[in-house]
Simulated scan of single mutants.
Amino acid sequence: MTDVTIVSEKLEQAGAVLADYDVDAWITFGRETSDIAEPVLPLLLGEDFVWPGMVLITQDDERIVLCETHDADTIRSVGLHEVFSYENSLERVFREVIESIDPDTIAINYSKSNNTADGLSLGLYRLLEEYVDGASVEATFESSEPIINRVRGTKSDTELKRIQCSVDISLEILETMRNAWRPDWSEADVAEFVHEEVESRGLSTAWHADVCPAVDAGSQAEWGHAKPSALRLPEGEVLHLDFGVVYEGYASDMQRLYYRPVDGNSTIPTGLQSAFEDVRAAIQAGFETLRPGIQGHEVDTAARETLTDRGWPEFQHGFGHQVGRNVHDGGTYLGPRWERYGDTPTKDVLEGQVFTLELGIETEWGYLGQEEMVVVRADGAEYLTAPQTSIELLEE
């Protein structure tokens, strides 16, 4: 079912963005999109295509859909697009529409670095080339990546409200887990409890449930994307969770730390407290650097150097990613300029984007990973929840 509110808001954004980039038309082209997803379609259409179909947005704010007859009625009934249907030939209908628009530039969905802007398959690209060559237009293709970065990345009011709800629910579930935790629980038991809480709310985890939540029980845990194991948390060590849910199509992603006291002594060891504060300082340095117009790698550097200046090794991942419809939502990346990240760390941060801020260190008490979610405002970053500024205790 079409999410009318989201599609309407995103269509409004798209017309303005095309004008900013002086692009005459933006084409999103897909087929059998329930099998081969086109990441833009949930934002601009809210429905799948069975047979080949297109969404065309023009600089004059026309919202056009070309689709096979059996797809047309559902799309037309929503009332957000002008729909042109076909039975035998998409090319014929396309030619009529594109000649009436007569664009000089057409943006299409390909990117070397951003998965959310790379939804056009090679086969459909070749087919689109043939369609344009056969029409009476002189148009050149360019990547729609800058457009998608703006339309997908800049969250509308509705999107921000849903992300905030996802954040709040995730923290509620984690607090419920902390209060219910028992010393005989394994990593797998913690994950099972969290899954039951998610299911009781009719939600899903933000990434594959086998590894969401990630649960690391103390210094012997295999932290990262490993499945929760039979390992139990020893006294005097730290339980680390990485977790998020999806609420009405929008994700959250946070990490939290909990300490199991020794013989009921709730005092956090001095070394553990110091290490925790080092991680907090690095995250705060990135938070204070994050603002519109700065490039992603500059934010990563601020956090990375704060941690290494305090004597810890450099973390081997980026500092933060965008969150939205997916837990990793493409676009500008708060990471180092490593080849694996392409050019995403050199993209500008924009107002309205939502990011994680995350890093961790390995210690004798376990992995001290922290992750917060923030939204970028005109004057800097704003936490979507109070950050974890102390290690929570697990009561036996």
Score class of each variant (00 low, 15 high):
residue 2 T to F: 03
residue 3 D to P: 07
residue 4 V to E: 12
residue 8 S to I: 11
residue 12 E to D: 11
residue 13 Q to K: 15
residue 18 L to E: 03
residue 40 V to Y: 00
residue 56 L to N: 00
residue 57 I to Q: 02
residue 58 T to V: 04
residue 65 V to F: 08
residue 66 L to H: 05
residue 69 T to E: 15
residue 76 R to E: 13
residue 99 E to Q: 15
residue 107 A to M: 04
residue 110 Y to F: 14
residue 115 N to Y: 01
residue 118 D to G: 08
residue 118 D to L: 03
residue 118 D to R: 09
residue 119 G to V: 00
residue 122 L to V: 12
residue 128 L to E: 09
residue 132 V to Q: 06
residue 133 D to A: 12
residue 139 A to W: 03
residue 141 F to P: 01
residue 151 V to L: 01
residue 156 S to K: 06
residue 157 D to W: 08
residue 157 D to A: 06
residue 164 Q to M: 07
residue 167 V to T: 07
residue 168 D to L: 02
residue 173 I to E: 02
residue 174 L to M: 14
residue 178 R to G: 14
residue 194 V to F: 02
residue 195 H to Q: 13
residue 196 E to L: 08
residue 203 L to H: 07
residue 205 T to Q: 07
residue 206 A to S: 13
residue 210 D to L: 11
residue 210 D to E: 15
residue 212 C to R: 01
residue 213 P to Y: 11
residue 214 A to H: 01
residue 220 Q to T: 06
residue 228 P to I: 10
residue 235 E to V: 05
residue 236 G to F: 09
residue 240 H to D: 12
residue 241 L to M: 15
residue 270 T to V: 11
residue 286 G to I: 08
residue 287 F to Y: 15
residue 293 G to T: 04
residue 306 T to N: 12
residue 316 Q to E: 15
residue 317 H to D: 14
residue 327 V to F: 08
residue 329 D to W: 05
residue 331 G to K: 01
residue 338 W to Q: 13
residue 347 K to A: 00
residue 350 L to E: 15
residue 357 L to H: 14
residue 362 E to W: 08
residue 364 E to Q: 14
residue 367 Y to I: 03
residue 374 V to Y: 11
residue 378 A to V: 09
residue 378 A to C: 07
residue 386 A to S: 12
residue 390 S to C: 07
residue 391 I to F: 07
residue 394 L to F: 04
